[in-house]
Structure formats: C-alpha cells, structure tokens
Design a protein around this nucleic acid. Structure first.
Length: 585
RNA sequence: GCCACUGUGGCUCAGCGGUAGAGCGGCGGUUUCGUAAACCGUAGGCCGGGGGUUCGAUUCCCUCCAGUGGCUCCA
C-alpha cells in the first residue's frame, strides 16, 4: 500500500490496518459532517479491531442514523476523493478551527507543544486536524462496516461532556471483513452468560443485580476449582482460615478502607453500632495474625482464605460473572521479613503461572504503581515497587507498567486473562504492602530478641472464583475437561429393554465416584445423544440389548471424539477416574 | 454513574392502538427405537414495575427497575 505522510511524502509500505482504519475514521467524520452539519468533531483513531470517531451532537445518533452514515461513507469511497495534506502555522490553524466552531480541535491544538508542526488532511470538502499518515484515495477503503454506537467522555474523563462515539471496522478485503464478522458471531456463542444459562451453571436475577446465584452444576465446577486450589496450596505450605463477612466500622477505619474505599463498601448497623460488609479480606487476616506472638522462625507465614467480599460497583459496569458485586477471592496473606520478599513473591508468581498453565491460559502481566488516592510515603511506595520489580525480573517475566493503578495500600503485579472477545480481565494479583502491618501494629520477634515489623503480601491466583469460572466457560466454550465437568458420564438406554441394565451401569459409575446421570426415558437414542451432546457431557454410555447380553461392556461415545466403540465398564470407569483425579482431561 | 439501545410464557423470537402467537422445552398419551431432534394432544403469559394520553395501551408518552454495547471505574 501507499501512504501519504504529513510532510507530503508518499511512501510504499506494507499493508497497515491502522492507517486504513484511521482513513476510514476520516471518511466517517466526513459523512457525518455532510449529513449532520454543525456536529463538532473530537477524535477518531484506529483501535485494535477497527476505529471510532467521537462527535458532539445534540441528542446523539440513532441506529437509523448509522445506516445513513454508512451509506454516505460508501458514496465518499465511490467518489474516490484524493487525500491531501498541508501544515498551518499555529495561530492560523487555531483561527481556522475556531472559525469552523471546532472547539475540541482547538483544544487539541492548544495542547500541542509549541514547536509541533500542525498538519491537516483534506479529502474533497472535508478537512481534519491530523498527524497522518493516510491512504492516498478514499477508494482504498473497500471493506468496512459501522459496528456500534456508544457514549464516551471527552478525553476519557467523566468530568467532561459525554460525546457520541461511532465504532466501525475496516479491512483490506471483503473476505477479511466477513471473517472478522463471523469470528464475532462465533465468539458470541461462547459468551459465558449465554452458556451459563444454557448449561445451568449460574444465574443472575433482578432481585440481586450483580449478585450471582450458583446452580448445582456451577457449584460442581466451583468445588473442583477449590479442591485443586487447596491441593496446591497445601503443597506450598499455606494454612487456611475463614473470617467474617461483617466487621465493625472501626476496623475499617484502622485499615484505611473507610478513608480510601468507603464508596465501594456496604454498611449496616447492629445494636446501634456501625458495621461494614467486607470488601477485602486483609483486615480479618491481620486480626488473626495479631492474636498471638510470632517469631522470626515462623516466617514466612502464608494464610489463605476463600473470602466472600462485597463491593458496590456502579450499575453500568456489571457484566455477567466478570464484573459482579459479590465475589469469592482465593485470597492469601503472606507475612515475612524484608529478606524474604523476593523469594516469596517469586513463589507466588510461579504458583500463578503453574495454575494458569494447567488451564492452558495465555496471560499478560502489568505492574500497577502508586495511585492518587493512597496511603504511605513516597519512599515506602518506591521500596515496595522496587521489591515487585526485582521479583518480576528474577522471574524473567515481561510486564508493562500501569501507572497509578495500584491498590491504595501498595503497588501490585496484575495477571490478565482474555475473554472470548479479546477483552482482558484482571485475575491474579500480587500486592506488596508496608502499610497494613503499621496500621495494625503487627510484629514478630527477631533473632536479636527485638520486635520487628513484618512485611505483608496480599495475593490471589484465580482472583475471583466467579470471574475465573466465567473465563473458563469461554475458554472451553462450555466443554469442560472431565475433572471440571458437572456431569462426567451420561448413561442412556436404547429402549425399554435396556432401562434396568442402564440403571445398574449408572449405579456402578456413581459408586466409583463418577459424576453420572442416567437417561432412561422412553426416547430414541439419537434424541438422548443430541441432548447430552448439547449439555457437553464428556462421556456418553449407550446401553442397548448388546450391552444387556454382554453384561459388563458399554458402548462409549465421547463428546469430542464421537463413537469410541465397545469397552469394558471397568476400563471406562478407570479412564474417567484417572482423568478426574490427575486433572488430565 | 453517564450515553445509546433493549425488556412479550422456562428458552429463542413474532405481533406494535381493539385485553396475545410460533418453535423448542414442560406435562399426558402413543411409539421401544443403536450414536445430534418419532408422532398426537395439552398446560403455561397483570406483554419488566408504576404513572399518564385514549372510549380502549403489549403497542404512544413520562418515570423507575433490569439487561446489552460502550465510556468511566475495578477482582
């Protein structure tokens, strides 16, 4: 493809979707300007899977507007306008934009450094402040589609006016565009909210927005995850505790949550005293630490807890199991000496990696630093952040820095997993905290016989069991491996004559510890198979007259591999048990 | 919370000024069948809640609630 740089230079270069999409954004803005004179333009960049443009339009756009705009865009493409570029001196640029009433563009120019070249791109009657580069002719935008309408704050701040954002996407070919559309359709089928309902894993009700209900089948997955968790954490010398959900407001004042986290906390009163529903588990853990004296010989102490926390999240942010108002953290708090910091954090990073790898997840890591609303001195934050960086580097992990996104009591390493649409969600996190130990005045007795302040690490692996299950549903598209599958084996009889034998087989599976269901309805076997297949049961046992005669063989169909033929019931049981206990399938 | 859109039986959806319909599922029969849907019958809905306009509202308007896509915010 050829691109036009803002100095007028034309360059031949590899196909670049960002340039194409950015040009598509200009065409979008041009179409909007033609159809809706007086609309003010904000910004219109290319993004990961397309582009958008923000407009300030009284009353916003309607879906019908979108169709008209898309049609107008096609016209502009067809007109095959030549794209040109030029620069203007700062004051002329400002005067020009002010003359057009483009207030947002004026603000953008005012924000540019004094010595910056201020460049414009022009196609036909349309001119936009832009650094480029762009394609040379509008005809280059062959395959595009407007995909959505949304509100977006000017400059991303909710203090500013809300603008109307139009999303779209563009590709070099129709085929690529169609593939992209199909991919999104495919992704929708894996949506954990849809599968959660269809597979009867969990439900959300009007009576508790953001407070998920887990159904029996969802609980099986939850329990399997917790069993696995307990197994690896026992191995890593973690203890387990459980702390109350409601604790006095005073405690939250001590911890700093009342000052820094109040807006997210539910409160209640008991016997005229103020209480809070816990949004985090750390204060409870600290109270337990404080119960007794600790020696340096005991450190590090690793204390885990499946803690149900409640946080008030704004209504518009709720999203299936990914963003809820109550969730269970697979939390743990590690108390240690300064010298132990690196090793302890490395151990946690290793553990998180082990668990994510078990599920076949790709993840990326971010280091979140001191937020605006925080407690503790800059020096402490620097020390803590340096401690995390050291552990990250010792672990050889790539990470990006997420400025200002730390917890109010300390910096953190965040582990992000992707959902089916490529949106990423924070799951695991490791936080280094110098504050809580001071606030709760906890100590240990050192080798010198003196009291010392331990360092505290907060960490989660799954993050939130709810969110993790949501990610798992999408990751497996509901086809859970045997060890997580709510129903591992479904026994189905071919006809009336095999009902009784099927009952016996199901009982044998159940006795062997397999999660098994029996389908002995008077239905055709094809119908039962279809249903079991839709329920995504890993193993289906077909029991007909052949099996009745042989007595100890079953006809096995696997969810993913189809008809596996005949097998001794003992072998089938052994196979399923092995996949379950070893968590290999 | 903000912007836009949506809300009809368990699920997926049609109807859009004259007090509701389909398919699947459920239930009752018939069928007894070998690897993704047998047939017949039947029940089930204050059309998200409240208010208004109208002779009359599922349909139009307002408002609240919930959901969806974003923004902001976060496990």
């Amino acid at each position: 493809m050829k691109v036009l740089h803002n100095d007028g230079r034309v360059e031949e270069c590899d196909d670049d979707l960002d340039v194409l999409r950015h040009s598509a954004a200009h065409v979008l803005a041009q179409a909007v300007t033609r159809l809706h004179p007086g609309v003010k333009l904000a910004i219109g960049p290319a993004i990961d899977d397309g582009f958008y443009y923000d407009f300030d339009k009284e009353g916003g756009f309607t879906p019908e507007d979108l169709e008209e705009i898309e049609a107008e865009m096609r016209r502009i493409v067809k007109e095959n306008l030549k794209v040109e570029t030029y620069a203007l001196p700062r004051d002329e640029a400002l005067e020009y934009l002010a003359g057009l009433g483009e207030d947002y563009k004026v603000e953008l120019v005012e924000g540019l450094p004094e010595d910056e070249r201020i460049t414009f791109y022009k196609e036909g009657e349309f001119v936009d402040l832009c650094a480029g580069p762009h394609i040379l002719y509008t005809k280059g935008i062959k395959a595009f589609k407007l995909t959505g309408l949304a509100g977006a704050y000017w400059r991303g701040s909710e203090k500013n006016k809300m603008l109307s954002r139009i999303y779209g996407t563009a590709f070099f070919s129709k085929e690529d565009l169609n593939r992209h559309i199909e991919l999104i359709e495919e992704a929708k089928k894996r949506d954990h909210r849809k599968l959660g309902r269809e597979l009867e894993l969990f439900t959300l009700m009007d009576e508790g927005p953001g407070f998920p209900f887990f159904l029996p089948k969802g609980m099986v997955i939850r329990n399997a995850l917790m069993d696995y968790w307990r197994e690896v954490h026992r191995r890593e010398d973690y203890m387990e505790i459980s702390t109350p959900i409601i604790l006095s407001r005073q405690l939250w004042e001590t911890s700093g949550h009342w000052d820094h986290y109040k807006d997210n906390m539910y409160t209640t009163s008991i016997d005229e005293q103020d209480y809070c529903v816990k949004p985090m588990n750390c204060p409870g853990s600290l109270l337990i630490y404080k119960r007794g004296a600790h020696s340096y010989r005991d450190l590090p102490i690793r204390v885990g807890e499946f803690g149900l926390v409640h946080r008030h999240e704004r209504s518009g942010t709720l999203h299936g199991l990914f963003r809820v108002r109550c969730f269970t953290q697979d939390d743990a708090h590690l108390y240690m000496t300064e010298e132990q910091i690196t090793d302890e954090i490395r151990g946690v990073i290793r553990l998180i990696d082990e668990v994510y790898t078990k599920f076949g997840f790709k993840y990326h890591v971010e280091l979140s630093t001191k937020p605006e609303d925080s407690m503790g001195s800059d020096e402490e934050w620097e020390m803590a952040t340096a401690g995390l960086v050291k552990a990250l580097e010792a672990s050889g992990l790539e990470y990006k820095v997420n400025e200002g996104d730390g917890a109010f009591y300390g910096p953190k390493i965040d582990f992000h997993l992707e959902d089916v649409l490529g949106r990423t969600w924070q799951c695991g996190t490791v936080q280094l905290d110098f504050q809580m130990p001071q606030r709760f005045d906890i100590d240990y007795v050192g080798a010198d016989g003196e009291k010392h302040r331990p360092i505290m690490v907060h960490r989660v692996v799954y993050g939130s069991i709810e969110r993790f299950i949501g990610i798992l549903i999408e990751h497996y598209a509901g086809r859970f491996p045997t060890w997580l599958a709510p129903v591992q084996v479904k026994v189905m009889s071919v006809s009336e004559r095999s009902h009784d034998h099927a009952r016996g087989i199901a009982a044998a599976c159940k006795a062997a510890g397999i999660r098994c269901e029996l389908d002995a309805r008077d239905e055709k076997i094809g119908y039962k198979i279809r249903e079991a297949q839709l329920e995504k049961v890993p193993y289906m046992l077909i029991i007909g007259e052949k099996e009745v005669e042989s007595g100890d063989t079953v006809s096995v169909r696997s969810r993913d591999g189809g008809d596996l033929g005949s097998m001794a019931i003992g072998d089938l049981i052994a196979r399923v048990r092995e996949e379950d206990l070893d968590r290999t399938g």
